[in-house]
C-alpha cells in the first residue's frame, strides 16, 4: 500500500451569497465588529443557520490520495471543485474539518498569478515562479525550459503588456507546469491556447503525473479525466456524490449533465 500524500477529512466551507455580509445597521456592524475577533471559527455554523443566504460551498468531504497518483475532481459548475482546490492551496480557510498534505504544494489554479504587465517575460518568469513557491535558483534552472515550452523565445525580453493574450497564457502556463512540487493542484488550465498547445499541455500534465508526483486535477473534459486519473471524486452542490472508480464517476457525471442540465440553477 502506497503512502498517503493528501488526506482530507470532513472538510466544509460556508459562504454567504448575494449579500455583502457587512451591511446592516450601524449598531449591527459595530456589534459584529467587536465580537468578530473573539468569535471562534467553530461558531460559524451557528451563524450559518441564522443567515438566510448562507450556503455550504463544500461539506463533509473526505478522501485520501496516494502519493504519486492522479485524482480527478469533477462536477458541474458551482459544485465546489474550485473551492476544494482553493482550500488545499491554502488561499482560503475551511469552516470545518481539516486536511493534511505531505510535500510541497504547487497550485495551478489561475494562470498568470503574479504577472505584471510592465515587466518583461523573463522578469515575470522569476516573479511568478517565486510566487508559486519556487526558489530563485530553481527558477533559473528551469528558465530555458520554460521559455522553450512557452514558444515566446523572440519576445522574452519585451514587457508582457505587449504580448498577445495567447502568448501571455502560454508563458503563464509554462511557468506553473515547471514547478518543482510534490503535490500539484491543477484547475481547468487545459483551456489554454490553441489546439496544438493544449495537446502539449495535456502531455506535460501526464508526464508530471508519471514522474511520481501527486496530482489533483479538475476538468470538464471527461476524456482527459479518463486518460490521466487513477481515482476520481464527483461533487455536486458541495457534497460528494461518488468517489473512487474513474469510469463510474464519469458515467454518473454524464448522467447528471444529461438529466439536470435543462433545470435552472438554484
Amino acid at each position: 500500500m502506497a503512502d498517503i500524500a493528501v488526506s482530507v477529512s470532513d472538510l466544509g466551507k460556508w459562504y454567504v451569497v448575494n449579500e455583502n455580509r457587512f451591511y446592516g445597521s450601524l449598531s449591527d456592524v459595530l456589534g459584529r465588529w467587536i465580537k468578530a475577533p473573539f468569535q471562534r471559527a467553530q461558531d460559524v455554523p451557528y451563524a450559518a443557520s441564522a443567515t438566510p443566504n448562507a450556503i455550504w460551498a463544500l461539506r463533509n468531504v473526505s478522501f485520501d490520495v496516494e502519493a504519486g497518483s492522479v485524482m480527478g475532481v469533477i462536477g458541474r459548475n458551482g459544485s465546489g471543485k474550485s473551492t476544494l482546490l482553493r482550500i488545499l492551496a491554502r488561499i482560503t480557510t475551511p469552516t470545518e474539518g481539516h486536511a493534511t498534505l505531505h510535500g510541497r504544494v504547487g497550485a495551478l489554479l489561475e494562470v498568470g498569478t503574479g504577472f505584471h504587465p510592465d515587466l518583461s517575460g523573463r522578469e515575470n518568469i522569476m516573479l511568478s515562479g517565486t510566487m508559486l513557491g519556487m526558489t530563485p535558483q530553481e527558477v533559473r534552472r528551469h528558465e530555458d525550459e520554460i521559455i522553450v515550452f512557452s514558444e515566446c523565445e523572440d519576445f522574452i525580453d519585451t514587457p508582457v503588456r505587449h504580448y498577445s493574450s495567447g502568448m501571455f497564457m502560454r508563458l503563464a502556463f509554462a511557468v506553473a507546469i515547471n514547478l518543482e512540487a510534490e503535490i500539484m493542484l491543477v484547475d481547468e488550465v487545459l483551456a489554454v491556447g490553441d489546439e496544438p498547445f493544449q495537446r502539449k499541455c495535456k502531455a506535460k500534465i501526464r508526464e508530471t503525473a508519471f514522474a511520481g508526483r501527486t496530482v489533483l486535477f479538475t476538468s470538464h473534459d471527461m476524456d482527459s479525466i479518463r486518460n490521466i486519473c487513477q481515482s476520481c471524486l464527483l461533487l455536486d452542490h458541495g457534497r460528494v456524490v461518488r468517489q473512487g472508480d474513474v469510469k463510474e464517476c464519469v458515467r454518473v457525471y454524464k448522467e447528471m449533465c444529461g438529466v439536470i442540465e435543462t433545470e435552472p440553477k438554484p
Binding site: 467553530q42 480557510t93 475551511p94 469552516t95 493534511t100 498534505l101 505531505h102 510535500g103 517565486t130
Partner: peptide
C-alpha cells in the same frame, strides 16, 4: 518532507516564524 495541516481559521497558530522564513524569496 514538509507537511502542511489545513485547519479552520480559529485554530491557526498566532506566530509562525519558520513559515515567514520559508516565504523570504516571495
Amino acid at each position: 518532507m514538509l507537511t502542511f495541516h489545513i485547519r479552520s481559521a480559529g485554530q491557526q497558530t498566532l506566530l509562525d516564524p519558520a513559515e515567514l522564513w520559508r516565504f523570504r524569496h516571495l
